[in-house]
């Protein structure tokens, strides 16, 4: 009895400790995330301007009407969704292929893993600049090599041609973020039990069959989580388009659109409405994705 009472007292004390230790982090996250998010939603119903954010009046849904009547907004929504679907699909397929390759038991594997990490770890701005230079229409190495091979006669304007700029941005994004996919899928591959493969080999199951019947289904949850992280990242893409093709409407993403309205046009109301719409769009995509793939258990670890 007595120890029980002590235990309860101790637990209450421990719970107080827990809240005390959590308080600084909760306070910081409230100030940096929850409060700003709430204010963004609030500003989306006002006529505030960035120069004087304190002076505003509520104007109901007017900002949203302005936003939804802007063809450029819808174009940036289409651009973002197209970019996300195509780039994440390619990155998943390529990432799976490279992960399977690096999973082979060969010397040099550790070196390859370090190599593959590099494009992911450097600033996107640097990658964009690097590719911009390689893709330069007159002096770029890509056009030079294509000319040497006799594929083209004169340099292609990779980032200025409206039909090419989106595929180019997707290709650069694939170069930047496939490593992330590879590493996550590789981690999943290394958690697979070796014994089932030994059993399958003894039973004479072909390697292709082992891949489709064992590896893929067992790997599916790891791939699904990796894809979710990439989806969230791709839907808010900003830097790559901004540097590679800053003013092109063909590659304008929703993040670029919202920042442009907010900072360049100083229109805090419409800019916030765009931000709020992006937030809801990403929340809906995430909710659908997590439900469809039943990821809630895996994500929360319960």
């Amino acid at each position: 009895m007595a120890t029980g009472a002590i235990r309860i007292g101790l637990n209450a004390k421990r719970a107080r400790t827990a809240w005390l230790f959590l308080a600084p982090s909760l306070l910081v996250l409230f100030a940096v995330a929850l409060w700003p998010l709430g204010r963004t939603f609030l500003f989306s119903f006002t006529d505030a301007f960035l120069t004087e954010p304190d002076i505003y009046a509520y104007i109901g849904l007017e900002n949203y009407f302005t936003l939804f009547e802007d063809a450029l907004w819808w174009q940036s929504v289409r651009n973002t969704l197209y970019f996300t679907v195509v780039s994440v699909s390619i990155e998943t397929a390529l990432g799976l292929a490279i992960a399977l390759l690096l999973n082979a038991h060969m010397s040099g594997r550790g070196f390859m893993r370090a190599v593959i990490l590099i494009p992911w770890s450097i600033p996107v701005v640097v990658s964009a600049r690097m590719w911009q230079w390689m893709l330069h229409d007159q002096f770029g190495i890509l056009n030079h090599v294509l000319k040497l091979m006799g594929v083209i006669d004169h340099g292609i304007a990779w980032t200025a041609n409206p039909d090419l700029v989106m595929p180019v941005i997707i290709a650069v994004d694939v170069w930047i973020t496939t490593p992330f996919m590879v590493l996550l899928i590789l981690a999943g591959l290394q958690m697979l039990p070796k014994s089932i493969y030994e059993a399958a080999s003894i039973d004479g199951v072909s390697e292709w069959r082992q891949f489709t019947a064992l590896t893929l289904p067992l790997l599916a949850p790891s791939i699904a989580v990796a894809v979710l992280f990439r989806l969230l990242d791709a839907l808010r893409m900003f830097d790559l388009s901004f540097v590679l093709s800053s003013n092109s409407d063909d590659t304008k993403t929703v993040s670029i659109y919202a920042r442009e309205v907010l900072v360049n046009f100083q229109d805090m109301g419409v800019g916030s409405a765009a931000s709020a719409a992006i937030f809801l769009m990403i929340a809906v995509v995430t909710a659908i994705y997590v439900t469809v793939f039943r990821l809630n258990r895996k994500l929360l670890g319960v």
Partner: peptide
């Protein structure tokens, strides 16, 4: 998971 752009004005 918050998109950074959603917080920008706040």
């Amino acid at each position: 998971m918050f998109p950074q752009i959603a917080l920008l004005s706040g």
